[in-house]
Amino acid sequence: MASVNRPNKQQNHPLDDLIRKDRIPHIWCPGCGIGTIFASCLTAIKECVATGKNGFDLDKFVMVSGIGCSGRAAGYVKLDSFHTTHGRAIPFATGLKLANRDLNVIVFSGDGDLFAIGGNHFIHAARRNINITVICVNNLNYGMTGGQVAATTPYNAKTTTTPAGNAENPFSLPLLAYASGATYVARWTMLHTRDLTVSINEALSKKGFSFIEVLSPCPVNYGRRNKEKPLETLKLYQEKSIIKNGADPSELDIDMEKGIILGKFVDIDKPTHSEKYDKLYRIE
């Protein structure tokens, strides 16, 4: 057909219908991994809706973010979206979900937001088994404010507030999620987009508190200070990552020497907060 080679003037992106195009360009730096993870998330949402399973309806998807680079995702997604205060995406999402159980609530935020200032909210939402999905972009530092140490920064890593190296140990996010009671726990890197998309699809379909950690480069603030060029970080993700589904959650510390374990670590069924609440409190 003659039209095959005709240039496509529209240049449409397959995720255009899920983006607030009037808010583009985004603020994310060149080399940042958030956009890739965000695209995986939108692809998974689209797939969920397309399959029609679980009665998924695009109008019922809600994205909630906190503050930080990843927190800006809520501002770009064309869904009902809430950009809340620092660390509070999860309690806000809890209120949304408990008030309207038809909503599919996704928390999309960063490691500083979810695990330092918001750490307490994370463990309690997991403990309660609130039926939401939390996606954490882990770039190992506070990117928005210029690269300060986070609760996820590796030991000895340099940041603007640990100029001689980080004296603290980081959280292992999957272990924390597992110990707190999450029903679904996975870890990927932004390089593993296909696995990540499948995983987000599974998490969205999962009944209960589902959690995915996604490692992401921050070349401008973290990589630069730790002598990691943007592509080198991606090479590390490729060469040092080991996919080990069902790995013991206690062995998931991020160690660039030994390797980073990726995969799905927890996928269990148990009643959600709302199911248990109804059983005890609603009189039929």
């Binding site: 909630v64 809430f82 809340t84 205060t85 509070r88 999860i90 309690p91 806000f92 999402a93 809890t94 209120g95 949304l96 979900k97 408990l98 008030a99 309207n100 909503l103 307490n120 909210h121 309690h124 609440y277």
Partner: peptide, 24 residues
């Protein structure tokens, strides 16, 4: 309706804001 005891007062009021945006 739904009652929940949150983990602190920050979460308590934040959950209230979320529930309000869900229409309650």
């Amino acid at each position: 309706g739904t009652f929940i005891q949150m983990e602190d007062e920050i979460a308590a009021l934040t959950s209230v804001l979320g529930a309000s945006w869900a229409g309650l």
